[in-house]
Design a protein around this nucleic acid. Structure first.
Lengths: 329, 329
DNA sequence: GTGAAAGCGCTAACAA
DNA sequence: TTGTTAGCGCTTTCAC
């Protein structure tokens, strides 16, 4: 393994000078810089990032923690984060907490041990494992869930999106839409349920809400339970992409066709949403964009250690009308 | 920041002893070990992984490089890898090369600079950026693509799966199935095309193959081009999940219904495959399992630096019959 | 503008 | 069984 001092010897300069050249520190003679670069190239020198990190007391790594890597929302988010990270010389460690709070906490502890430059987390729920990180001075950005006042947040307008979805179903003539959402501990689940509830109440209708999990199976179970109830709904508002898959499964099992026998609007514009038959009317969030924004906020925090006051960025959602919400008899 | 030596002072022992305790080295007096742990806990000590890595000349990080994080095959693979990694005290850096060979090479260089403990890569094509890694002594496992004789591989039986898919379409009575696959540079694309071609020739039919990209848009374009040709196919063999989404899109645009007007069998059992209407008949690979296996091979290589000879693991595929391949008129 | 020297926090010889 | 000592490869004062 060729190291910095080898390059120094080859170029006939000191290690300090090589370090300066490689870090683009301007106070170095151009001729010498050239010589050093030539030597580095000749020897095939690769800087040891670990040694550098130890000395600098901070790595070039970001930790991203999400709760479900199978959920296209999070893969899009990850792509946004990674694109900004790579463009700025950072790289991204992806942690999948699998809806497990303990595992999430483990990743945060790890972030601290690995001295990562920053953390972007989409937490399951409000929780304080983030606080320890803050105490250690590692910048954090939270996505989709309020964590604490001192940090930056990137959120989607869950409440507004839910209102729009529910209003749309009612406008289409559905009379008893039900809502299937995530766990009560999740802020987005609560906000989406609230938006739905408000619109129902405003219309003089009784809200029916299933708090389950943001998972396919939970969606399937929730839809089945609702359909088996005394007053089954005639439409569904599925509060994320995984739940909507589950609802589709139950509908299929029972020979019901969305956009005809029942109505369906889902949160999240998944890759398959426009390609299923019927295609799915969705409230599109913009996870890639959210990833970009979260990454930018993190970059700012890392660079300017100035303590600008925390930011709360809320991105709008968009209704994309397709077939599943229509009512054709 | 509390460090190892602080714990040592608190416990009244040397740094070396603390290190031994924390690394579970058995040759240490239990009473002393207990004292050390108590001190560590009291001070809230968090080991500095960077310093440890520098000293040990290897980190606890694995680098996973895939070509498309939006493809559910790779997210399932990642979950398999991550589960094994976490269970063994490693963590996983996920790199998304986005079908860009240069970006792939960047990740490998990074892996070297970061001194990762090992690399699992699903390379775009045969290429030699892996060789540099090997030279630096970092163990590598390749998935889905042969790279070079000296490393371990985990593969799916693309050829067998493709034969089965094609035979199935013919058995259903489709007469002119066409194949849409990935780029010619991709080994899986070639193997799947070959399996298809063989079965067609054996049946006395003319194979029609579109080599495109493993992307939704490519699948849509390929299907459109085929349908616009002089002798349009009456069925499609889509060689991965993304392509099959694209084929569905084109069919939908043209008002064709799979399982009725045209036949469709796809590689990859995606989350939506059984939930679309019609549901999609697929050749299931087992990406989660492949991730597990790749991770196990990597573990072996990391632990036993013994040079066991390279392994080629080929996992079987399974036909899952659903609706899209049926022929009902 | 450049070099010498110290040290980031930890582990691993070696000695006791 | 425990402590002492010497680095891992790099960056960064501090002199010159």
């Amino acid at each position: 393994m060729v190291k910095l001092v080898d390059v120094a010897n080859e170029a006939g300069v000191s290690a300090a000078t090589v370090s300066r050249v490689l870090n683009d520190i301007p106070t170095v003679d151009p001729a010498m810089a050239k010589r050093v670069r030539a030597a580095a190239k000749k020897l095939g020198y690769r800087p040891n990032a670990v040694a550098r990190s130890l000395r600098k007391r901070r790595t070039q790594i970001w930790q991203l923690v999400v709760s479900d890597i199978a959920n296209p929302f999070y893969t899009a988010l990850a792509r946004g984060v990674e694109d900004v990270a790579v463009a700025n010389g950072y790289h991204v460690v992806l942690g999948n907490s699998k809806d497990d709070v303990a595992r999430e906490a483990r990743y945060l502890e790890l972030a601290q041990q690995e001295q990562v430059a920053g953390v972007i987390i989409a937490p399951q729920r409000r929780n304080d494992s983030v606080t320890a990180l803050l105490a250690s001075g590692i910048p954090v950005v939270a996505v989709n869930q309020t964590v604490e006042a001192r940090i930056d947040h990137v959120l989607a307008d869950s409440h507004g999106g839910a209102r729009e979805a529910t209003r749309y179903l009612l406008t289409q003539g559905w009379e008893r839409p039900a809502c299937i959402t995530g766990p009560t501990t999740s802020e987005t689940a609560q906000h989406r349920a609230r938006g739905y509830r408000e619109v129902m109440v405003e219309a003089g209708l009784s809200p029916v809400i299933e708090f389950r999990a943001y998972q396919t199976q939970a969606g399937a179970d929730g839809a089945a339970a609702l359909l088996d109830s005394d007053t089954p709904p005639d439409a569904f508002f599925a509060c994320n992409a995984m739940i909507s898959l589950g609802v589709l499964k139950t509908l299929k099992d029972r020979g019901l066709r969305a956009g005809q026998d029942v109505g369906l609007v889902a949160f999240d514009d998944a890759p398959w949403s426009e390609l299923t038959d019927p295609s799915i009317t969705v409230i599109a969030q913009h996870p890639y964009e959210m990833g970009i924004q979260a990454a930018r906020l993190l970059l700012e925090r890392i660079r300017d250690d100035d303590d600008r006051s925390p930011v709360r960025l809320t991105l709008q959602t968009d209704l994309i009308e397709r077939e599943s919400g229509l009512r054709r008899r």
